[in-house]
């Protein structure tokens, strides 16, 4: 069957599989978002839909080699975080941390500052722009292996050269076969993964120790940066004292002001005081008694009717034929 060249604005790129033809849909990347500008240069970025589930960066590069050299491949937004964080954790130290890819690049600096202010105790090991230099974490061994993604996933492909983009978007005369990179797949991958997850104990030790060091370092740093100091209550410009839960009565950060308990926060009710039972007698007057009796009888009848209706329904479904 002849393939359409374009579907909904996407160029159809057939990929030859052993018994079939996989389709990758490609389109020039166009984003309104300011943030992605730097990551995805508009004139060089190809937006791909339905990349093979086990595609690696290398494989995609090989596949698009006919169009030009691929600078990098970003599989999806979340992966962006991952790759950068990973680089971070392994001590490269240079990666700028961008937790929230929606956050504008320019406001990054400010953002981290703010974070540090509002979050004195919740520390993240990746805040380490400031001196002194943070301790390096010994990485756990990783070999490059395939990450499987959900089927039908998208990817951004950044070419080195903007001319490649149009080349990539011209429909292929015939399906290109899917290249294969040296990352392990299948059984070999599972074996490698298994072994890799059980690193030698000394590496585990080194990793854990250094990671803890880094944590301590971050903790210390944030303490320094934090506006909170032990023993000093924090009063903002409007004169409110900041408090947090903890201790027997809750505490200010430093001070000694009580704070509402969790239940109060959740429900707005104080749990400690039991609601007083109303002492009023329910059957004091004769009419109350009579009404109560009447109600009991009515309930009896109501339940009975309800039962009857239910049985009637069961009867309809011929349930009462024992055999």
């Amino acid at each position: 069957m002849a393939l359409p060249k374009i579907v909904s604005g996407f160029t159809v790129l057939p990929v030859a599989y052993p018994h079939s033809r996989h389709i990758i849909y490609a389109k020039a990347h166009a984003s309104s978002s300011k943030s992605s500008k730097s990551t995805f240069p508009a004139d060089r970025t190809l937006f791909l839909v339905n990349v093979p589930v086990d595609a690696t960066e290398r494989e995609l590069s090989l596949f698009f080699r006919y169009a030009g050299t691929v600078e990098r491949v970003i599989f999806d937004q979340n992966d962006l975080d991952d790759t950068e964080l990973q680089g971070d954790a392994s001590g490269s130290g240079s990666g700028s941390e961008d937790e929230d890819s929606d956050a504008p690049d320019s406001s990054m600096e400010v953002d981290t500052e703010e974070n540090a202010e509002t979050r004195p105790r919740k520390n993240r090991k990746d805040k380490k722009r400031d001196e002194p230099a943070p301790p390096t974490v010994v990485p756990l061994p990783t070999s490059p292996h395939r990450t499987l993604r959900k089927t039908g996933a998208v990817a951004h492909l950044v070419f080195l050269d903007s001319s490649s983009l149009s080349k990539a978007l011209t429909p292929l005369p015939k399906a290109r076969s899917w290249p294969s990179s040296e990352e392990l797949r299948g059984l070999a991958r599972y074996r490698a993964l298994y072994d890799e997850q059980r690193p030698p104990l000394d590496i585990v030790k080194a990793h854990a120790d250094t990671a803890m060091e880094l944590y301590e370092f971050e903790l210390a740093k944030s303490r320094r940066q934090s506006a909170y100091r032990k023993g000093e209550a924090i009063v903002d410009e409007d004169g409110f004292t900041l408090v947090t839960r903890g201790g027997a009565y809750g505490k200010t950060l430093g001070g000694g002001v009580g704070v509402a308990n969790k239940q109060f926060q959740a429900t707005g009710k104080t749990g400690s005081k039991k609601k007083k039972e109303s002492k009023e007698k329910a059957s004091f007057y004769a009419f109350q008694k009579a009404e109560k009796q009447r109600k009991a009888i009515m309930d009896l009848k109501k339940n009975f009717e309800a039962d009857k209706a239910r049985i009637e329904k069961l009867k309809q479904s011929r349930r009462f034929k024992p055999y």
Binding site: L3, P4, I6, V7, S8, V12, Y17, P18, H19, S20, R21, H22, I23, V49, N50, P52, V53, D54, K150, T151, G152
Partner: peptide, 29 residues
């Protein structure tokens, strides 16, 4: 879309942007 697809048109419709599950390709993967 969340699935591996291949373009496919309904026989008597002109709307081009339709796809169908690419079963064999999934199996190959």
């Amino acid at each position: 879309g969340g699935f591996s697809s291949t373009p496919e048109q309904k026989p008597n419709e002109k709307n081009k942007g339709t796809v169908v599950l690419n079963k064999q390709a999934v199996l190959d993967e």
